[in-house]
Amino acid sequence: MPSGTHEVQLNLSIDSIWNFISEMNNWAPLVPGYIEHQILSETQSTWKFKGDIGIMQKKVSLQIDITKWQEPDLVTFDLKGLNENFAGNGYFKAEAISDTQTKMTGNLDITAAGMMGPMINPILKSFVPKTATELTDNIANKLKELHPVTK
């Protein structure tokens, strides 16, 4: 099952991170290949992005359903393709190391199904971890930008 988990450590409080993560519009543009998203309800949104799998780029529409909203440390979600036959889930997790240090973890788990699934899954095996890493790093970098360390 193609999946990827990436963690980064930030010199920020868990609340700073939660404040940013809990507002989807803050980090939506940081999703690799982001095109647009639409918030349908508190728990449901649709997304369009362009996935670059090296040999080609694929525009993907998917729906995300938030399955757990546990302030200030965990968001879990399910996702499914709107035009393509794939589904999966993922989470953002924040763990306070101290008052000013937090470990942030991003996870994605996506599996293609249907006739083309066996052909697509080997491609997703490298794409999914790369995306999880890029997204987590992008969020971390944005947070660093918003909360510069002053000396």
Partner: peptide
């Protein structure tokens, strides 16, 4: 298939 691009 307009969702598939190759070299942009």
């Amino acid at each position: 298939d307009p969702t598939i691009e190759y070299e942009d």
